[in-house]
């Protein structure tokens, strides 16, 4: 049971129960990501103005880990420049894959530390982040085309 508590911390549960970044953003670019092993889908929406993320939300269905992680990610993406956002996402994915990342750079993403001990759940925690990364790459492409 203690092991379960390492995964399902009160903080994660509170993120899950108060998904304040859940919903669509009208007129914003969205991208769907899937977890092939469980069939979960998530859609991330990013509204970008002048290379800065002005709004970030998600829709979809998933477990406590994937949903709380999506909430935290969307909060953290707000007001980040696209390149900063990409860096932040890469850092989180590295962290979840067990690489050493300075804790002070992780912010609220550090709450997912416990998930690293459950390899089968790492992909739940990173689903939204992988999806957002792909979306950011698309958006950057659009920007540079426009520029």
């Amino acid at each position: 049971m203690d092991e379960l508590r390492e995964l399902y911390t009160d903080t994660l549960m509170s993120f899950y129960l108060a998904p304040d970044r859940k919903g669509k953003i009208a007129d914003a670019q969205g991208l769907e990501g899937k977890n092939l092993s469980c069939g979960d889908r998530i859609k991330v929406f990013l509204q970008v103005e002048d290379g800065v993320i002005k709004d970030a939300k998600f829709t979809g269905y998933g477990c406590v880990i994937s949903q709380s992680s999506a909430t935290v990610m969307c909060r953290m993406l707000l007001n980040k420049r696209l390149d900063e956002a990409k860096e932040m996402i890469d850092r989180f994915i590295d962290f979840m894959q067990g690489k050493d990342v300075p804790e002070e750079l992780l912010g609220d993403a550090l709450y997912f530390e416990g998930v690293r001990r459950f390899p089968s759940r790492v992909k739940c925690a990173t689903l939204a982040w992988h999806t957002a990364k792909e979306l950011i790459q698309k958006l950057k492409g659009i920007q540079s085309d426009a520029g």
Partner: peptide, 9 residues
């Protein structure tokens, strides 16, 4: 509750 959380539990 998502089935993944249930099986983890």
């Amino acid at each position: 509750l998502h089935p993944h959380d249930v099986s983890q539990y």
